[in-house]
Simulated scan of single mutants.
Amino acid sequence: MLSPVIAGVDGSAESLAAAEWAAREALRRERPLRLLHVWDWHPRGHDGEPANAAQRHLARRTLRQAEDRVRERVPGVVLTDEQVEGPATAALLKAAEQSDLLVLGSRGLSGFTGLLVGSVAQGVVADATRPVVLVRAGEEAGDERALADDGSPSPRTAHRDVVLGIDLADACDEVIEFAFEEARLRRARLRVVYAWQQPSAFGLGPGEIGLVDDPERPEEWRGFLSAVMAVWRDKYPATEVLETVVQGKASTALVRAASGASLLVVGRRLSQRPTLPRIGPVTRAAVHHAGCPLAVVPHE
């Protein structure tokens, strides 16, 4: 049985946009879609049973709202739903293990009814061993495609670029393959972005030479990037690839490249030491500032 695309829903505008995005993605992948709502369990006692009954009622209403939106806007998707007990982060991480892809709203409600708040989404991204996509409120199907000649959204225009942020010092097959697959599914161009910074003389080790003003450095990075991409171009000959090398901070370059993209793909190394931070600065900047859906792909 095919593992589903799973969308976490909590009634927020972000989670409804995530559910709709996940439905389109499920169709592209030829997978079923499962809508998942997590509610807080209260132990038996003074308010336990009434509170749990209220939570289950709220969960049913939240799931029905998301189902209605998905069935209206993405009618061809195979759809199921499920409600489970929290805590939210743990429940979503468990669901991710059973998914082809987990999709969440990048921000959600706060307080008693809000489960997919920013800290929860970030906690899932930090610990998930499967790819996670974060979607902002207001994301529509038309946002995935280039505008028509008259400046209006059109289902007939080509998909906007898929953007892959790559670290040439740690180029991981899982992340690259995910980005190529997303571009293939959309028949979109893949734009691969690498940002480099000139080494500081203060950061050099003994015997190292800092070529601070080396005019050939950008061309060397372009050659390195092309060499890394060569095998993937052969594997995906129908996918147009644009290789971009820029000087500057990677976070700035990726957030800029994500403007006008259909999807931004970044990697996250699986931590062997849970006490250490598990979201690097580049991924963290993308989570907070990317203007398009963000896919975070874990890798060894």
Rank of each mutant, 00 (worst) to 15 (best):
S119E: 04
L33A: 04
A66T: 09
A95L: 06
A90E: 14
V117L: 01
G111K: 09
A90F: 04
R71C: 05
A121Q: 06
P75S: 05
H42I: 12
A91H: 11
L101Q: 12
L63I: 08
D68M: 02
P87Q: 12
L109F: 02
L63W: 03
V38K: 03
G105A: 08
G48N: 11
D47S: 10
Q98M: 04
S99C: 10
R73P: 02
P43G: 10
A51P: 00
L116M: 11
W41H: 15
R56I: 08
D40Y: 00
V74D: 13
L79F: 03
A121P: 01
L116T: 11
S119W: 03
E30Y: 01
V120L: 05
H37T: 05
H57Y: 02
L63N: 07
L102M: 05
A66K: 04
G114M: 05
D40L: 09
L92Y: 03
T89Q: 15
E72D: 13
Q55L: 01
G45R: 08
D47G: 09
L104M: 10
K94E: 15
S119P: 06
R73L: 14
V103W: 00
H37K: 03
D100S: 15
T80K: 07
L58P: 02
H37Q: 10
N52L: 07
L33E: 10
P75W: 02
G45L: 02
E72N: 08
A121T: 13
E67G: 04
R60T: 14
L104N: 06
P43R: 09
P50E: 11
R31G: 01
A51W: 05
L101E: 11
R56A: 13
R73F: 00
V103I: 09
E67K: 08
P50K: 09
